[in-house]
């Protein structure tokens, strides 16, 4: 395959939050350039279909690099998500006249929530990142919002957001309100505990008077977060992108990635 036929990284994800996160990580120089492949329809069922539609014409004719971001929803398992993508890729290869191409995902050595697939003969690489971090163990699912929340609750991020508002309140107080006082208040009033990170994000945004969607709020959070925190929280995502980016790396480069 000639250099002229080389491709870029296409990213597929469930919703706008992932898009904003990827965008901000790229903007801050923490992620290689990826093409953001969202569509009118959002949600997990759309991801594999979108991948097939976008990537299909390039399979076998051009370098293909795909970054797939998925949440770990309630009653969902990593194995099932991996299997679903595997099936979709197998169908894609079949459709494109390569029924014998093997689809096998291998777990990243350093990051258990990242799976990697390489098809050398078709010059295809796919990295699957599954959001497995949960802010609270009681949450019903792990989502990309959990990662955002973790960054948001970093005292430097909170301080930057407070400063942006021109307030003099300490970051510690804001974080305490989000993580302790509000949940306690809900509990006192007999209101069920918030079940997912997005609920916390909403309260957080309301406290800071940031009247926007969780996706755009996530972008603002990442914009104000310290780089070291972003590097740490999004290390698996960056490792997945690095696998796609590095043409010379071995198929499973986990040992070459930063810890």
């Amino acid at each position: 395959m000639s250099a002229a036929m080389g491709g870029s990284i296409d990213a597929f994800y469930e919703g706008m939050t992932e898009k904003k996160i990827l965008h901000m990580l790229m903007q801050r120089g923490l992620l290689a350039k990826v093409n953001l492949c969202d569509g009118k329809e959002t949600g997990k069922t759309e991801v594999n279909r979108r991948l097939r539609d976008v990537v299909g014409p390039n399979v076998g004719t051009k370098q293909v690099r795909c970054l797939v971001l998925r949440d770990l929803d309630e009653r969902e398992t990593m194995e099932r998500i991996k299997q679903g993508l595997q099936t979709a890729l197998q169908a894609l290869y079949r459709e494109r006249g390569h029924p014998k191409a093997v689809v096998r995902f291998v777990r990243h050595r350093a990051h258990g929530n990242v799976y990697l697939h390489t098809c050398t003969e078709l010059d295809v690489r796919v990295a699957l990142h599954i959001a497995t971090y949960r802010h609270l163990p009681d949450f019903c699912k792990s989502t990309i919002d959990d990662y955002v929340l973790r960054v948001a609750l970093h005292h430097e991020t909170a301080a930057a957001l407070i400063k942006r508002q021109g307030w003099s309140i300490s970051s510690k107080r804001i974080i305490h309100k989000v993580t302790s006082e509000i949940p306690a208040l809900l509990k006192q009033n007999g209101i069920p505990m918030m079940g997912e990170a997005k609920d916390f994000i909403h309260f957080y945004a309301a406290l800071l008077r940031v009247h926007t969607s969780p996706a755009v709020f996530a972008e603002k959070i990442l914009h104000h977060a310290p780089e070291s925190e972003l590097r740490e929280v999004f290390a698996p995502l960056r490792a997945a992108a690095e696998f796609l980016q590095d043409a010379s790396s071995p198929s499973m480069p986990g040992d070459r990635l930063p810890a």
Binding site: G39, G56, P57, N58, G60, T61
Partner: peptide
């Protein structure tokens, strides 16, 4: 001669995303 093909869903997906099916790079 090298070629790749698009079915209708490919085409619609590409156009929706601002991708240009006419060009390779």
């Amino acid at each position: 001669l090298r070629s790749s093909w698009f079915h209708a869903d490919n085409l619609l997906s590409w156009l929706e995303r601002g991708m240009d099916p006419r060009i390779w790079d």
